[in-house]
Design a binder for these strands. Sequence first.
DNA 1: ATTAGGG
DNA 2: CCCTAAT
Length: 560
Amino acid sequence: MVQDMALQKRLDYGFNGYQVPPTPRAARSARKRCLFKRKADDQQICAFDLLATVAGKLLSDEESSPPSANTSSGKEQSRLRPASGLTTSDCSEKVVGPAEQLVNDDCKLRLGIFSPVDFESSGFKLSAKCGLEDGIRKDIKVEPANIRNLSIITRDNDEKSSECTEPFARNKAIKPPPRIGDRRFRKFLPSKHCKITSNVKDEERYNAENFNYLNRKNNFKRQRSLRDYPFKRESSMTLAQCLILMKALAVTEYVGPENGTNGGGLGSGPTQPGVIATPTSVQGGYMSFHTRDDQVKLKIKSFRVPELLIEVSENSTIGSLKQTVMDAVNSVLGGGLCVGVLVQGKKIRDDNKTLLQTGILHDNKMDTLGFTLEPSSTPAPIRHYPEDRPAQLLCDSPQPLARYPPTPRVTQSAGQLRNLDTSPDLPGTSFNNFMESDHDSDPSSPGMSSQRTTSESKALVPTFTVAEVEALVQAVEKLGTGRWRDVKLRAFDSAKHRTYVDLKDKWKTLVHTARISPQQRRGEPVPQELLDRVLTAHAYWSQQQAKQQLKSQPDTCLLL
DNA sequence: ATTAGGG
DNA sequence: CCCTAAT
């Protein structure tokens, strides 16, 4: 069948992501790896060097536009989008070998052309790892840049650090990452030891996964807290009040140019908030473009969602309103949006203009810089029925919703970020998204104050992102539906908060989602293409299973 | 520890 | 997601 061939093609994908071990077993082997690593320092190819090499190679191949202040211009951005279909495997497979081979034409093609700033501003970043188990292995991967729980940390030779024995230690003091967005990429850098850490505080989870009784205990606790979590008693609020509450800030913050050493960022530098004109309905998405040195550094705290029409009855509960807005926002996001840029209220249409030409300078006033989300095709009016979603619904799925701050907030995910880029299909394959936060205590302040609130307050993300779904689908396509542990290892090894049970469950719901009509679907929409693949893969593997069973018991099913 | 499936 | 039974 044609479909089978298509599937088979996809199944041929390889994968070679690096892993931060999420399971105890993997953690143990990681320790082994690390021990080895300590002894093998000399042979070890620095991950950073590797990156530098790749980047430098890419740059030197790209004579037309040397990196300069202009590199983040629209012209550049048009090239930022990695070729769709880029996967970790695509890269890492190419990457094994001497540095020079890292970037052959093929790989370059797949990677797209990155300039230094692109690594962070394009929404993707490169990272690398050296793993030593049986020989030297080098993996490069491309991942969404807004993944926060992974950082490359350069280290001196001192290996006393706990990096290996505590693979999940929070790295609060994230040292300034190697200057990725930097023309120094053209050179090799002095060898430093890089490590990739996960931002996850994971002792408890580690234990929980390790021991059933602990698991139970934790589950019990969690359930209690959820049950006891009172749904906000805002029900008396009028709809109008609520809408006021939901008004978005639409603030663009300008963070001054980075002065080298200080990796801090959020609090530093002059901030010149500017409000975009007349917000209508808004979701407080968050994303940030980080660039370095002479680059403009922006932090976009929210986007206006255009043409978002919502109809709700005044009798609706806050809960149903939240859900409605969520659904609406998500459906718009899922439908693909374009990002528009406003400077002084004027829309900049010329994508080829540089920031410089547009007047977006690092020392400029940023009070008039704005971004918009624009529907790529048609506005999606969304209507909702008054009481079809009472507040109890939220209690049914408390995790994602219960903690939403008053302003409905859609967590900016890798997948959504991609959507902003209107890139239709871009499988990120390694997911280390979303730091875990266990602040059971104070869900209150949505936080505008301190250094890290913005990024960390949206930490709790139990819902699967589109990018994760992509990875899951890809893994299942290759491995089948009966090998969740392998799926986990293959595609989610570094995503500690996804257990194989999660993956299995997600697959179940995916299959279900794919079977129902699009209208009945809720939550962030999964691209139809993915759902199709789900169905195809599911059918394929079901068939395989059936065949296996037939083989094992041929006599029980006799053909006529 | 994993897998399969019901709730 | 949770829970359980069966591997």
